[in-house]
């Protein structure tokens, strides 16, 4: 799959929702914990060496699972291979909670679900489709039928 690294690098420089130095261990066997600057930008999690401007890598946070591991640590895995886990070590339990919360909300599919939920609820209360006022009520991504059970 072709993609332009420069486009992703530009995205990694956008304002971050969350950014911190965390311990990070990749999914490969024998990987060791390394200090990384971890940055959440929209639905991508970028990680940098602490002395470099360009990211080492990025994780697209769609269809991922955020799991609490030992105290102060969590992992990210993806549905197609849940055994492959990226581990993160935080400096406190509080920081860990904060990151897990932010990561769980950082997917386009989560946004889509929230949007459809709010749209339905507003329709139930007011009898009107709130998206009509913006002329976007027909868009495929806002349709209930698109939602997985």
């Amino acid at each position: 799959m072709r993609y332009n690294e420069k486009e992703l690098q530009a995205l990694s420089r956008q304002p971050a929702e969350m950014a911190a130095e965390l311990g990070m261990r990749g999914p490969k066997k024998g990987s060791v914990l390394k200090r990384r600057l971890v940055k959440l930008v929209v639905n991508f999690l970028f990680y940098f060496r602490t002395d470099e401007a360009e990211p080492v890598g990025a994780l697209l946070l769609e269809r991922c699972r955020v799991t609490r591991e030992e105290p102060g640590t969590f992992s990210i895995s993806f549905v197609e291979d849940p055994e492959r886990k990226y581990h993160f070590e935080c400096s406190s339990e509080e920081q860990c909670q904060e990151w897990m919360e932010a990561l769980r909300r950082a997917s386009y599919e989560f946004m889509r679900r929230s949007l459809i939920f709010y749209r339905n609820e507003i329709q139930k209360v007011t009898g009107k489709d709130p998206l009509e006022q913006f002329g976007i009520s027909e868009e495929a991504r806002f349709q209930l039928s698109g939602l997985q059970a």
Partner: peptide, 29 residues
């Protein structure tokens, strides 16, 4: 730069709804 390409490809093919699709011509990527 690394990217979790397998997961990205998996998302591309997953059953979550596509927002738009169709044939397009492209030059010079």
């Amino acid at each position: 730069m690394k990217l979790n390409e397998r997961s990205v490809a998996h998302y591309a093919l997953s059953d979550s709804p596509a927002d738009h699709m169709g044939f397009l011509r492209t030059w010079g990527s």
